[in-house]
């Protein structure tokens, strides 16, 4: 009983409960048919949200106004970079992944420079840089639908006992990110900056270095995500990352991370990602139209945040 109570006190548990309810609703509708397959598919798709969600989480935790809107363009460019470098050859997979990572990190570092050197608010800075990245992507990857190397495409689709290997990797990665957040100097610093940037500086935290690392990290995760998406969907495209603009923010918030900064939650991102993906799956199995699907998604986001309540006033 006590164990249940402590479990319920965790903010992330709700997103998992939500995911469970949605899944149960979906399989009730299908009469149990495809229950396992639904989970496998959901795990595969949720991983991509988790990867960018964690990057976005660190950025948002830096405090009010911090957000990375360049992720979609970043993902698009990285997917093109990875596919071009790999060039369909199995031997180039590692190089391609590194290139995608580097492309993402470059975007992240550029974001930080705009914010720091030119003192542009993060929302606008990442937005403007995403315009530029998008153009680079269009010019760089135009018309080329390069297929991923077969080994890479297969890798992204491997399943072990019905669990996609990417999902296993995603869980391990989330675990590491949780450790970094709570038990490493980096994570502590991010949390401190998010609560009060000035107090953090006065407590000896190298604020600007941490912000640089965070934006670069978010960019790097976007880059990796781009490469993996291209493998999973068998090819790069300019709009491959589009849905991650809103969903990366949504999973962070639904997962229990505070938009006001200073409070983050890694497990919740997994829960929220599964919840969102399963929600879409459920609505698809119900056969509702795209409009109803969007409508319900929106209402649920508003409902969740209203129920979860706001933070105490930021003075």
């Amino acid at each position: 009983m006590n164990a249940i109570r402590t479990l319920l006190a965790r903010p992330w548990i709700w997103s998992f409960i939500g995911a469970l309810i949605v899944w149960l609703a979906a399989i009730t509708f299908t009469g149990g048919y495809g229950a396992g397959g639904m989970i496998t598919a959901a795990l595969s798709l949720a991983v991509f949200m988790v990867i960018v969600g964690i990057g976005q989480m660190f950025v948002i935790t830096l405090g009010p106004g911090n957000v990375d809107l360049s992720l979609p363009a970043n993902i698009g460019l990285a997917s093109a970079v990875a596919m071009k470098v790999m060039d369909g050859s199995n031997s180039m997979i590692a190089v391609g992944l590194i290139a995608a990572l580097a492309s993402g990190m470059a975007v992240g570092a550029a974001n930080y420079l705009l914010i720091r050197v030119l003192r542009i608010p993060p929302i606008i800075a990442t937005l403007s840089s995403s315009f530029i990245v998008l153009s680079i992507d269009i010019a760089y990857g135009r018309g080329l639908q390069i297929k991923p190397p077969p080994a890479f495409a297969d890798f992204t689709n491997i399943q072990i006992l019905g669990i996609p290997i990417l999902a296993i990797g995603g869980v391990i990665f989330a675990f590491l990110a949780g450790i970094a957040l709570q038990r490493m100097i980096y994570g502590r610093s991010v949390l401190a900056i998010g609560q009060n940037m000035r107090a953090a500086w006065l407590a000896g935290i190298p604020v600007e270095r941490i912000r640089f690392l965070t934006y670069t990290l978010s960019g790097a995760l976007g880059g990796i995500n781009g490469a993996l998406l291209a493998g999973y969907f068998r090819g790069a495209s300019v709009d491959i990352g589009n849905e991650y603009l809103l969903s990366s923010i949504a999973v962070v918030v639904i997962g229990g991370t505070s938009v006001a900064g200073g409070k983050a939650n890694v497990p919740g991102i997994w829960g929220a990602s599964l919840f969102l993906v399963l929600l879409l799956t459920m609505l698809n199995t119900f056969g509702v139209s795209a409009g109803v699907r969007l409508l319900l998604t929106g209402l649920i986001i508003v409902g969740v945040i209203t129920a979860a309540g706001g933070q105490p006033a930021q003075r």
Partner: peptide, 22 residues
């Protein structure tokens, strides 16, 4: 304290330790 000192979401121990993380 409010603007320059405390981290309101943290415990007492975390507030003490932040300057000595290394």
């Amino acid at each position: 304290r409010q603007t320059d000192g405390i981290f309101p979401l943290w415990s007492i121990a975390q507030n003490i330790g932040i300057r000595s993380l290394a």
